Simulated assay, not measured.
Amino acid sequence: MKTTFVTDLLQNWQTTKPNLYSIADRLYQCIKQQAPELIEKVKYGGILFYRTEAESSVICGVFVYQQHVSLEFSQGAQFEDVYQQLEGSGRFRRHLKFRNRNELDTKNLNYYLALAIHS
């Protein structure tokens, strides 16, 4: 269920970054469609999705920046990145950057979301 904080953040993005809002909203909708049971929280300026209330159970997050929207995967370094689209070189995290709506269809979003949700 969408919290007031999430609704407020999405509305803020729609007002302040309308060109990126549609990407962020689509990512949000895709995550909720694949895993409606996830708990969502606004944190670090984005929307984080958790398996449980425990801080260690975060699986991914949506963040809007100046020129792109990032879908961050907390354990993305463990993913089998068969499409070679994940970015980042940290110990755990990887992310997908979306600069336009077309990239939502070309970056194998459902594949990466399934890895995050079911791993």
Rank of each mutant, 00 (worst) to 15 (best):
M1S: 11
M1C: 09
M1I: 09
K2S: 01
K2F: 01
T3R: 11
T3V: 10
T3Y: 04
T4Y: 05
T4P: 02
V6R: 12
T7N: 08
D8P: 02
D8I: 03
N12R: 15
W13S: 01
Q14K: 15
Q14Y: 02
T15K: 15
T16W: 06
K17E: 11
L20F: 09
L20K: 02
S22A: 09
S22D: 07
A24I: 01
A24N: 12
D25V: 03
D25C: 04
D25Y: 15
R26N: 02
L27I: 08
L27Q: 00
Q29I: 11
C30P: 03
C30S: 15
I31S: 12
K32Q: 14
Q33Y: 08
Q34H: 06
A35W: 03
A35S: 10
P36S: 10
L38T: 11
E40S: 05
E40N: 10
K41L: 05
K41Y: 07
V42K: 14
V42D: 05
K43R: 14
K43G: 04
K43E: 00
G45D: 00
G46F: 06
I47F: 00
L48H: 11
F49P: 01
F49V: 06
F49I: 00
Y50S: 07
Y50W: 03
R51F: 09
R51S: 04
R51E: 03
T52F: 03
T52L: 07
A54V: 08
E55R: 00
V58H: 12
V58R: 13
V58G: 05
I59R: 15
I59E: 00
C60V: 00
G61S: 13
G61L: 06
G61W: 08
G61Y: 10
V62R: 01
V62C: 14
F63A: 13
Q66H: 12
Q67D: 15
H68I: 02
V69R: 07
S70T: 12
S70Q: 12
L71V: 02
L71E: 09
E72P: 05
E72F: 13
F73H: 11
S74T: 08
Q75S: 03
A77Q: 03
F79S: 08
F79L: 01
F79Y: 03
E80F: 09
E80T: 13
E80N: 15
E80V: 07
D81A: 03
Y83P: 07
Q84W: 02
Q85L: 15
L86Y: 12
L86T: 04
L86W: 10
E87M: 10
E87W: 10
G90K: 14
R91T: 06
R91I: 00
F92W: 13
R93T: 10
R94L: 13
H95N: 11
L96G: 09
K97G: 07
F98R: 02
F98T: 07
R99Q: 13
R99D: 00
N100T: 13
R101H: 04
R101D: 13
N102D: 14
N102K: 12
L104K: 07
L104P: 11
D105H: 03
K107W: 08
N108T: 04
N108H: 15
L109D: 05
L109F: 03
N110V: 07
L113D: 09
L113H: 09
I117R: 04
H118Y: 13
H118L: 06
H118F: 10
S119V: 07
